[in-house]
Amino acid sequence: MTKGMLMKSPVDSLSPKTSVDPQTSEEELVKLAQQGEEVAVREIIRRLNPRLFRIARGILDNSAEAEEIVQETYLVAFTRIEEFRGDSKLSTWITKIALNAAKMRLRKRHPTQEYDSVSEQLHQTASVIAFPSAPQRSPESEHGVTQFREWVESAVSELPSNLRIVFVLREAEGMAIADIAADLGITVMTVKTRLFRARRHMKKLLESHIQGGFENVYPFDGARCAHMADSVVELLPDVFQTTRSE
């Protein structure tokens, strides 16, 4: 099969027939997605949205671009779902697509700078990251949570890209170090070294707050998650049409 040409896939015409739930195995979801079951596509998106958004946001500098990368990742993944053979986890396969897409976007912006060689000097003028909206909180706790979150977001913003992505995957996504190494294509020792450097930078600004609180960094759920699923499902048929005509 030549580059740019895809075999006709059932996903070309999604059908809402089978029911799935959070306990449905990844293997079963892949089979259903390859058969064109819309519910399987939506469930895969729901499960992977937080990780993919955090990965893209860890590499890029704004949430809008990160969301574009997530959508682009799903369109590539689901138009090529027939090529997935289960040699790795689906999440790993799609994560690599997201990483490549985010890195390519970064290289287009800085064509002479490699993603993995970003300077580790802290940028004192870094602005606060505009994260997607978190779930509603009570008025009594909103002020304190907002202030703490601004401190965390500002500190994360100041991390160099190669440290930020490792820090976000570990602290916000809760991924195992070995999985981070596999997804980023680096050694476990490199992950540990970058994580140590990231935490050292963070500790300078968050000495009394370094423990916990990071599970809410780069959230991607609720209406935002549902909107991503709707957009991908709507665009997939057109993308198939385009790729087959190239």
Rank of each mutant, 00 (worst) to 15 (best):
L99I: 11
P139Q: 11
R57P: 02
A33T: 08
F131L: 11
S154C: 10
F53I: 06
T125C: 12
S157D: 01
L99P: 03
G36D: 02
T79I: 05
R107N: 08
A102R: 03
E142F: 09
I81A: 13
R80F: 01
G36Y: 02
N100Y: 08
S91R: 06
R47K: 00
L75V: 05
S117G: 01
H143P: 14
G36P: 05
K89L: 09
I45A: 00
Q136T: 04
L106D: 01
K96L: 14
L122K: 09
S141T: 15
E114N: 05
P139Y: 12
R85A: 01
Q34E: 12
K103L: 15
F84E: 01
A98S: 11
E37T: 06
V39E: 15
N62E: 08
F78I: 03
I69F: 03
L48Y: 02
P139E: 11
S127M: 12
W93A: 01
S157M: 05
L75R: 02
T146V: 15
P135Y: 00
E150T: 13
P111V: 05
A33S: 12
P132E: 11
P50V: 00
R107K: 06
S127R: 13
R85K: 12
N100V: 09
N100P: 05
E150V: 10
D87A: 08
V128S: 15
E83G: 00
R42G: 06
S157F: 00
I59L: 08
S138Y: 07
L32P: 05
R107F: 09
K96I: 08
Q124E: 15
A77Q: 01
E65T: 10
T92L: 13
T125M: 15
I94T: 05
I55C: 04
V156N: 04
I129E: 07
E38Y: 07
S63L: 04
E38C: 08
A56M: 06
I94M: 12
A101Y: 05
L106Q: 06
S91L: 10
E67L: 11
R46S: 00
P132I: 02
V145K: 15
S157A: 04
L99T: 06
L90P: 03
L29N: 05
V76A: 05
Q124L: 12
I44T: 03
N100G: 11
P111L: 08
T92R: 14
V70S: 00
V145W: 15
T92D: 08
K96C: 10
Q147F: 11
K31L: 12
E83A: 10
L29E: 00
T92G: 03
Q34S: 14
L90R: 03
P50K: 05
A134F: 10
K89N: 07
V145P: 09
D61H: 11
K103P: 13
A66H: 04
V118W: 10
E82V: 09
W151P: 01
E120F: 06
G58D: 09
E120R: 11
